[in-house]
């Protein structure tokens, strides 16, 4: 069987097909590399948020704050603690804390992300809540602790999201 070429035809069908296949391969390869790169930075960001949230939780639940009676003059607070001894939440400090301006607290913690602090009753309903509205459809990390509040065990939760 003979194959003819018309005058002026340069690119054969085979070449066109190979061009398309190679282009698709290129696109897949570039996308794949980009995805690996994006995944790496997403993981770093997510892990950093977790570690940072853990550090903030430690500050809140392990120390009375600096100065230790900061609740008397919240404008001069250097470090917010809401406990008198580790994990025992005190009403005065908690009330002073939730009375702080949200942006002021973020600034105090050097936090670029949004946060929400909650304390739950034992039946899991929210007793105390402070911060931005919850992180629906956002990449969020939550740090949970069991604390003693009003002589009862409560769940403490700090959520941070982008």
């Amino acid at each position: 069987m003979k194959k003819y070429k018309s005058k002026g035809q340069v690119i054969s069908m085979d070449l066109m097909i190979s061009l398309v296949v190679i282009s698709i391969l290129f696109l897949f390869m570039i996308n794949y590399y980009q995805k690996i790169e994006d995944d790496f930075y997403d993981d770093v960001k997510f892990q950093d948020m977790q570690i940072y949230g853990h550090a903030i939780t430690q500050i809140l639940l392990k120390t009375p704050g600096i100065p230790s009676n900061w609740e008397n003059d919240a404008s001069n607070v250097n470090m917010t603690g809401i406990v008198d001894i580790e994990n025992r939440v005190v009403d005065d400090k908690l009330n002073a804390f939730i009375g702080l301006d949200y942006d002021f607290t973020r600034d105090l913690w050097n936090l670029e992300e949004d946060f929400l602090m909650e304390i739950f009753y034992q039946n899991n309903s929210v007793e105390v809540s402070y911060g931005a509205t919850s992180a629906r459809n956002k990449k969020a990390v939550a740090i949970q602790r069991v604390v003693l509040y009003q002589n009862e065990k409560r769940k403490f939760k700090l959520t941070i999201w982008e």
Binding site: Y52, I56, I66, M79
Partner: peptide
Amino acid sequence: SSLIQINDYPCKIPLRAFGNSSGY
């Protein structure tokens, strides 16, 4: 400013006045 840089990597500390010894 409570910002530490490690080889140009910004390392945030959740304490506003870190570095200001009058705070603590």
